[in-house]
């Protein structure tokens, strides 16, 4: 198991899972989100190959209503 921070919350994940696996776990659609890993934007084409490791900080954002 590895511990990561996802959108400010500490969660445990299986070791060696990819960002794409994480997105699937939370039933998110790739087209509707953007992701930062440790403060750097992760391009969509890297979701599958990017593996998560202990202490990674992940931010997943989407569009919401706003003025």
């Amino acid at each position: 198991m590895a511990k990561i921070q996802l959108n400010g919350k500490k969660i445990s994940i299986l070791t060696n899972i990819s960002v794409r696996d994480l997105i699937k776990k939370y039933k998110l659609k790739e087209k509707k989100i953007a992701i930062e890993v440790n403060g750097t934007i992760l391009p969509k084409q890297s979701y599958a190959k990017k593996k998560l490791k202990n202490n990674d900080k992940i931010e997943i954002v989407q569009f919401i209503g706003g003025g």
Binding site: L28, I60, F63, I64, G67
Partner: peptide, 11 residues
């Protein structure tokens, strides 16, 4: 339309 960017609600 204008839209804002916020964290996904993972819960």
């Amino acid at each position: 339309v204008t839209v804002a960017v916020r964290r996904v609600n993972i819960l």
